[in-house]
Design a protein around this nucleic acid. Structure first.
Length: 826
RNA sequence: GCCCGAAUGGCGGAACUGGUAGACGCAAGGGACUUAAAAUCCCUCGGCCUCUGGCUGUGCGAGUUCGAUUCUCGCUUCGGGCACCA
């Protein structure tokens, strides 16, 4: 009988589905374990990246089940998003139709992989039964002041025809289509993620189970800076019309020689009111704003500015300094105005040299003299303050605090924290997303949709046309409504929510996916969350993972969750690479998982994706390697076929006494259990786990096929075979279930528990001790494990090969490392 | 520019807290079986040399150590993140 993977895989998949084998419920005496892979966007077909991601997750789920956990392992669909709209236009169909067809197809594909999901918990985020609750969360956030509307400069992607959040702009381009984004002035809805900036930052310390890399990326993204916020009065204007700045270098405040403000700065209007050069300055501002919009984030442009002719007063020393508009000042960071200290900031320095502004050093590093006229670059080192009034002579680090303190007592400044993180803009001018549940009334203003009127559903008769305004804006039957306050005619919000909102809480909804009373069933959520192991691509290091952390904290504060962080452990798996680059249609280097499954079966496909590289590394695709895995499974299959009677007869267990070959196989079996368990527990290095099982099988087949020695008896062989099947079962479940049932009539491998190893059995009879002379290996000794150091040293010195190297030399020292080596130093 | 990672045979990758470098797999070469092929099985497989032995070898250069793929310092290359953040 050949290894008929098709029949085997079909049989077990049917079995698992019809028995709902992996359904879980809360009422269990077993400890819970929640393993989750990032859910897919239903783009049409699964790709190798999915196969890898879900294979890893399935190994974890199956392993934890074997370890006796009550494992929650759900799957669903991140099913709102732009590709559905584009495909609908192209194929003249409806996005919903396209999406649900894709889901049906991809569900089939996932089932072909034999993944152990609780399919009863499947969710699709485009289903009103899901987004209804998202709209409710939105309204509860609105009530709490965590949602607001503003008109501001946003990132616009012309190709996708929508606004993007800052996190969705990658190197100046759209995360989805790579189009360079433009800056646009637009009204939109925002989530106040900045309210949680401090907690999002602090709680990174709790994420010990996350890769450092991801934690660092989030820390940098949040970008906390502490410093001084300080007001400079503007000469000739009232005290209210002052210029407020933020600096992380208050110690350099006596070195201010000019001010730089962003071209969009609101105070500029006031400054220009009666300014004789008003037109010239306004022209300049327009020009640099335009340039900024065109410039890709990549290149640093030449510093440019214009003197406004206005001056402000440094409150510390009364210095009168000119105010410039400068192209490198960002309105979005700090206050949009920067005190310029050219002696100690490189950007200010370049600007000062260009416009011949004074350079005044005030922080003098040790053993150093600074001359403002001859300096060639800014000095950013700490030092002693000079030319700084009463603060002269103070150490610059200490001066920071003292200067802030001074400003506070005088009332013109205080310590301040600034974050790089911006609020999350969630308005999208798209159709295929969750409608934002708000209503605009001319009389009553913006009104939330009453909760009992949720969900606000999408109109189904969408016309397939691209136009400049939001698709829902073209549907009167959608937006025409009554004001919930006054009952008069009003207009619904026609923007939809960013699809990242759906994925920010789906992991929580899995705990009670059919709950009809609220977004979450608190009891279920409390039981299942947090996710113990989350697995997905590193491309979400900031985006999805930051938003999900934010939502978790919000849902906690709304009373739905009792956790601070959603994902205790995170595994970021590497990409699947072929011929040196990521598999993609445009590169023409894609391998379709379905072809592979047809040719070799799901088990081989899974096995290779786990064997070729550790999960966090990129995986180089190699079709020959797949054949190697297929061969391995075939060898095991044949072995079990050919030795079935003996394996069945040996299931009574291993007894004493054992022959030397039996001891060898028995030992290898227990060593392998130990190794595989360690590999999985420690860092999910399935590649080495699989190679260990390969070694065990190699030993088994060598010992049983060797006619020189007496082959091991049935009990030890049986133990080895059972062990191989159990250890491989998380990776190749159909294969192991099939062979298990063929040698254990009427018993299912799923009912077994993970094998444990016997430390005594795993111990080697003899140790190999390396003998080095001056650090170079000269001989190897076979010794009993309990040999003492002195005896070992003696044996080493007597060794024939060693003698050749030490003869006639005096021995300075002999180092003996227990159970490892002897090093003779001459 | 700043902040992280990584670098080991022809290839993917092993090597626990410094202690046998190259496990396991792929590819390659040789052989057995076969009329033949496929499949299967066995052997060889970092480089060099005076080849039952020796020298050398984990990106490069130093250092610490009896001993370094592993630790320290300085580079190089590649990958990732951030990027005028005041």
């Amino acid at each position: 009988m050949l290894y008929d993977f098709k029949a085997i895989e079909n049989r077990w998949q049917d079995h698992w589905i019809s028995n709902a084998s992996y359904r879980v419920a809360m009422d269990s005496d077993k400890e819970k374990y929640y393993v989750l892979e990032m859910f897919p966007y239903p783009s049409g077909r699964i790709h190798m990246g999915h196969v890898r991601n879900y294979s890893i997750g399935d190994v974890v789920a199956r392993y934890k089940r074997f370890r006796g956990y009550n494992v929650l392992h759900p799957m669903g669909w991140d099913s709102f998003g732009l590709p559905a709209e584009n495909a609908a236009i192209k194929n003249n169909t409806h996005p919903a139709r396209w999406t649900y067809d894709n889901i049906d197809y991809m569900r089939k594909q996932l089932r072909q992989l034999g993944l152990s999901y609780d399919w009863d918990r499947e969710i699709a985020t485009c289903n009103p039964k899901y987004y209804k609750w998202e709209q409710q969360i939105f309204l509860e956030m609105y009530e709490k002041g965590l949602v607001y509307q503003k008109t501001t400069t946003v990132n616009w992607c012309e190709t996708c025809h929508t606004v993007l959040a800052n996190e969705q702009v990658i190197e100046g381009a759209c995360w989805r289509c790579d189009q360079l984004v433009e800056a646009r002035e637009m009204n939109g809805w925002f989530f106040k993620i900045t309210d949680y900036a401090e907690e999002l930052l602090d709680d990174l310390d709790k994420l010990g189970g996350w890769p450092d890399k991801v934690v660092t990326m989030q820390r940098n993204w949040i970008g906390k800076s502490t410093g001084l916020q300080c007001d400079f009065e503007v000469e000739g204007f009232s005290k209210e019309e002052k210029l407020s700045i933020f600096t992380t270098r208050p110690d350099t405040i006596f070195g201010v020689t000019f001010m730089s403000i962003a071209p969009e700065h609101p105070l500029l209007k006031t400054l220009l009111k009666d300014n004789p050069r008003k037109d010239e300055i306004q022209e300049f501002c327009k020009k640099i704003i335009r340039e900024k919009q065109q410039q890709s984030n990549q290149d640093v442009i030449e510093k440019e500015g214009i003197d406004t002719g206005c001056h402000c007063i440094n409150p510390f020393n009364g210095d009168r300094v000119p105010i410039f508009v400068a192209n490198f000042v960002l309105m979005a960071y700090g206050t949009g105005a920067v005190m310029a200290v050219p002696a100690h900031d490189q950007r200010d320095f370049e600007f000062a040299r260009k416009y011949q502004l004074p350079v005044k050093p005030v922080v003098i590093p040790a053993d150093c003299e600074l001359d403002g006229n001859s300096m060639e670059e800014a000095s950013t080192l700490p030092g002693i303050l000079a030319d700084s009034g009463d603060f002269s002579g103070t150490d610059s680090e200490a001066a920071k605090e003292k200067i802030i303190e001074f400003a506070r007592t005088k009332g013109f400044g205080d310590s301040h924290i600034t974050y790089r993180l911006r609020d999350w803009g969630i308005s999208r001018q798209r159709y295929w997303g969750a409608p934002i549940p708000m209503i605009n009334c001319d009389t009553c203003g913006t009104q939330p949709v009453p909760v009992d009127q949720l969900p606000v559903t999408l109109p189904e008769d969408r016309e397939s046309q691209q136009s400049d305004c939001a698709p829902l804006h073209q549907r009167p039957q959608f937006y025409e409504t009554q004001c919930p306050q006054c009952g008069g005619t009003a207009k619904r919000e026609t923007d939809t929510m960013d699809t990242f909102v759906e994925s920010s809480w789906y992991f929580a909804r899995y705990s009670s996916p059919r709950f009809t009373e609220a977004p979450l069933d608190r009891k279920e959520a409390s039981h299942w969350l947090p996710v113990d192991q989350y697995i997905g691509g590193v491309e979400h290091a900031i985006l999805h993972l930051l938003y999900s952390r934010f939502f978790t904290k919000v849902l906690r504060d709304l009373g739905y969750l009792d956790i601070d962080e959603p994902f205790t452990n995170l595994l970021t798996q590497g990409m699947v690479i072929k011929d040196g680059s990521k598999m993609s249609k445009s590169k023409g280097n894609v391998v379709d998982p379905s072809d592979l499954i047809n040719e070799y079966g799901a088990d081989t496909t899974r096995l290779f994706s786990l064997f070729a590289a550790p999960p966090e590394k990129d995986l180089e695709w190699n079709s020959k390697g797949v054949e190697g895995c297929f061969r391995f499974l075939n060898r095991i299959f044949r072995f079990v076929q050919n030795n079935r009677e003996s394996i069945i007869s040996g299931t009574e267990g291993v007894g004493d006494p054992l022959s030397p070959t039996e001891r060898e196989l028995h030992r290898k079996t227990h060593q392998t259990i130990k190794k595989v368990t360690g590999n999985i527990e420690h860092n999910f290095h399935f590649n080495t786990a699989i190679s260990a099982v390969m070694e065990l099988f190699n030993t088994l087949s060598a010992l049983t096929g060797n006619s020189d020695k007496t082959p091991p008896g049935a009990p030890v062989v049986s133990e080895a075979v059972n062990t191989i099947l159990l250890l491989l079962c998380p990776m190749v479940p159909h294969f192991c279930a099939e062979l298990w049932s063929s040698i254990h009539k009427g018993s299912s491998i799923d009912d077994e528990s993970w094998p444990s190893w016997d430390e005594e059995a795993a111990k080697e009879d003899m140790l190999t001790i390396v003998v080095q002379v001056r650090g170079k290996v000269r001989s190897r000794l076979q010794v009993a494990p309990d040999i003492d150091n002195a005896a070992l040293e003696g044996l080493a010195l007597q060794d024939e090969n060693v003698q050749k190297f030490i003869a006639g030399k005096s021995i300075k020292k002999v180092i003996v490392v227990k159970k490892k080596l002897v090093n003779i130093v001459i």
